[in-house]
């Protein structure tokens, strides 16, 4: 019985440590390999071609076309560039989610009538999103971006869901409730 309790306690401790690690391993603008990272983030957040970007970076169409047509050196360089872009995309999407979460928290603090169910849902969604990102980063590191399209589509969908979840309550609240002074 005591052994069982110790195992459960260890399991909970592990979950807490992992959650903390995820929470603190937040993406930073300086991780991006661009000269003007702030601008990159601003433009990434506003561009409308997200699906096509995902298609280009993670889709296998370009790779299938290229692989029998060029020497080995160019193939390697192409894959290396794709991997680098995939990590950039991942960092940018995490920064975007983090920024949405910060906005949501700021708004949530200023309202008196919080909805615990909704807040819980947002928190769970954010955690699931971070876990998906961590999983994707691991897969990218192991296998490269090609043939991971399904996973990325899910991560992108999750990010969109998070944005929808955090934006809609603000709109509803700003029209119906009055913030604390």
């Amino acid at each position: 019985m005591t052994g069982m309790l110790i195992l459960i306690a260890l399991g909970i401790l592990l979950i807490v440590v992992l959650a903390r690690m995820l929470w603190h391993s937040e993406p930073k603008a300086k991780d991006l390999p661009f000269d003007s990272s702030r601008e990159a983030i601003a433009r990434f957040a506003s561009f409308e071609e997200a699906d096509q970007v995902v298609e280009r970076i993670f889709g296998d169409e370009d790779w299938n076309f290229l692989r029998h047509r060029v020497p080995n050196q160019i193939r390697r360089s192409f894959l290396k560039q794709r991997r680098e872009m995939a990590f950039c995309w991942l960092t940018l999407i995490r920064i975007r989610a983090k920024s949405a979460m910060h906005h949501h928290l700021a708004y949530a603090r200023s309202f008196q009538s919080l909805e615990p169910m909704l807040e819980g849902k947002v928190a769970i969604n954010y955690l699931a999103f971070q876990l998906s990102c961590a999983l994707l980063a691991g897969l990218l590191w192991l296998r490269g971006p090609v043939a991971l399209r399904g996973t990325v589509a899910r991560a992108y969908e999750l990010c969109e869901r998070l944005r929808a979840l955090t934006e809609v309550p603000w709109a509803q609240r700003t029209s119906s409730a009055r913030p604390r002074s």
């Binding site: 661009f34 000269d35 003007s36 601008e39 990159a40 433009r43 990434f44 561009f47 071609e49 970007v53 280009r56 970076i57 370009d62 192409f78 560039q81 794709r82 680098e84 872009m85 950039c88 995309w89 940018l92």
Partner: peptide, 11 residues
Amino acid sequence: DPLIVKIFLSN
């Protein structure tokens, strides 16, 4: 967008 620029230059 720097990411789109990267995609273009690589392709």
